[in-house]
Simulated assay, not measured.
Amino acid sequence: MRTLVAGRYRLRSLLGRGGMGSVWLAEDELLGRLVALKHVERGGQARALAEARAAASVEHPGVVRVLDLVRDGGEPWIVLEALTGRTLADVLATDGPLPVAEVRRIGLRLLDALEAVHRAGVVHRDLKPGNVQLTHDGRVVLIDFGIAYCPAYDEGPPDDGFAGSPAYVSPEQLHGARPEPASDLFTLGATLYAAVEGRSPFDRGDLFATMLAVTEADPAPFRLAGPLRPVIEGLLTACPDRRFSVAQAREALVTPTVTSVKRPMSPAPPASMIKA
């Protein structure tokens, strides 16, 4: 691995590695600042450009900022703001479930971020604890737009069924439906459940059992959610048309005594074969 990228960015340490690439902390030697560099694996040039464009189209403090897209040796590197703190997944693994008040704060900040993302015509598609950064100055930041869908830049909807983590995907995405904002709201519900309960609502330790639990929107029993249970249940509704909207979820979080928010009735989605 080279230590200087594009003649400018000096790699310092590996921050994380995923299925589509790795993220490094680096020093911008030209401007004298720290940045995060995402290295997209060879052959992922088109996906890297789509990811950078999708994230860059959103201007909001709750969304990671894209600073540039550079190439080094023919390989793309996305230049991102360097964030302090830890991911929500790391916090849960180290500290356990979070207090209800803190989860409520995180939920409200993520709703603000999703509202900005959807207003820009983007569907994140991969909201989960590992993609939520909790910074030292109190920001709640949505990161990693690696599988985001943006009709303005993508030629068509994904044709590979679903991408991302099986325990944090919406039922309609398992059925291969076109990505819609409502899908991000389902995964928000799963993320808030994990934050307050300390575990994924659908992870059953087996891929098929996990996917079946998601398809049936059948979360594990609530133990710690307390006043957050109604909003989480409203977000974890199998039918997208009956799922809480951003406005409904915000109302339920701001007014935790609300036990139900009227949702339009519509038939459940037809059953179809799950794409593995």
Results as ranks from 00 to 15, higher is better:
M1V: 13
A6T: 08
A6E: 09
R8Q: 12
L11S: 10
R12E: 15
S13M: 12
S13P: 00
L14T: 10
L14G: 13
M20K: 05
G21V: 02
V23E: 05
W24Q: 02
A26C: 12
E29I: 12
V35S: 03
A36I: 06
R42W: 00
R42S: 01
R42P: 00
R42G: 00
A50P: 02
R53C: 01
A55M: 09
A56M: 08
S57V: 02
V58K: 01
V58G: 02
H60P: 03
P61A: 08
G62P: 01
G62C: 08
V63S: 04
V64P: 01
L67Y: 07
V70W: 04
V70I: 07
R71F: 13
G73D: 00
G73Q: 00
E75K: 00
W77R: 01
L83K: 04
G85W: 05
R86C: 00
R86I: 06
A89E: 11
L92N: 02
L92V: 05
T94L: 12
D95G: 06
G96V: 10
L98W: 04
L98A: 08
P99L: 13
E102F: 10
V103I: 13
R105M: 09
L110G: 03
L111V: 12
A120N: 10
A120M: 10
G121F: 09
D126F: 04
V132A: 05
Q133A: 15
H136R: 15
H136Q: 15
H136Y: 12
D137W: 13
R139W: 09
V140A: 06
L142G: 01
I143V: 15
I143G: 03
D144Q: 11
A148E: 04
C150Y: 02
A152P: 05
E155G: 11
P157F: 08
D160Y: 14
A163S: 07
G164N: 07
P166W: 08
A167N: 01
E172T: 07
E172K: 05
Q173M: 14
Q173L: 14
R178P: 05
A182N: 07
A182W: 04
S183M: 14
L185M: 11
T187I: 12
V196W: 03
E197W: 05
R199S: 00
D203Y: 13
G205P: 04
F208Y: 13
L212V: 13
A213L: 07
E216D: 14
R223K: 13
G226T: 08
L228I: 11
L228Q: 03
P230T: 12
G234Q: 06
A238Y: 04
R242W: 10
R242K: 15
S245M: 13
V246H: 14
V246E: 08
R250K: 14
S260M: 09
V261H: 09
P264Q: 14
M265E: 15
A268R: 15
A268T: 09
P270C: 09
M273Q: 13
I274Q: 03
I274S: 05
K275G: 10
K275C: 07
